[in-house]
Design a protein around this nucleic acid. Structure first.
Lengths: 110, 110
DNA sequence: TATCGTTATATCTTTGCAAATATAACGGTG
DNA sequence: CACCGTTATATTTGCAAAGATATAACGATA
């Protein structure tokens, strides 16, 4: 009949912390090792990606990524252990939500 | 720590059917008896309200509202029994979701 | 110290959505 | 048949978010 859809995100005191788009970006950073490459792999402008990471860092209690500029290779961006933990937690939440929403669809059976 | 937030909506084959804003509008129509008054009570432009109702009707299987134009009082808009049922179902879903999200917040305790 | 690819930031342009405005059509009532 | 408040719809305006472009700063390495 009708399909239940949802979108989830986490908010801290200083605004939105993590959402689905930010998680996707963080995962791309994890595999690419740099913010610019991650943005490119997602067909996202570097500026937008930078803004997202900036917002994450400002709303997070601990650092989510470590950025280095200059040096051999130009630098890069790495996801911290804390960041990796948050990614795992968020994906587990998403999975649980998905299962919950499925269980709720019988509400609209008529 | 971080607060889990979510947004839920229902999709049919022809696009979005019901969301939180649309439910709010339908409830205002229920109490006001007209689309223009409902829009005014929500500080929403008539056009936006009309577009929402139009989208609801296009994506719904059965009529959600009945609209009459002209006549004494100018006409009005009424929510059908089917529409009232859907409102109830959606609000129950929302309540269940809220409880579920609360139960999930321990995922992020560290 | 020249090079390189990255992060960082400013500025301008575009574009898509929201809001505002205007006007027509409707039809029961007095 | 004039009036009224509603639904219905087109057009214009405004603005904020997104995108494009350009440029500076960084620092390990050779």
């Amino acid at each position: 009949m009708y399909q239940i859809k949802s979108r989830i995100w986490l908010e801290g005191e200083k605004g939105i912390f993590l959402g689905e788009g930010r998680i996707q970006l963080l995962k791309a950073i994890e595999t690419e090792g740099s913010l610019s490459k991650a943005a490119k792999s997602l067909n996202m402008s570097y500026k937008k990606a930078w803004n997202l990471i900036d917002a994450i860092n400002k709303s997070s209690i601990k650092p989510i990524v470590t950025k280095s500029t200059g040096g051999n290779g130009g630098g890069g961006t790495l996801v911290t252990d804390y960041g990796k933990l948050k990614i795992k937690q968020f994906e587990l939440l998403k999975k649980n939500c998905w299962e919950f929403m499925n269980s709720q669809s019988e509400l609209f059976k008529d």
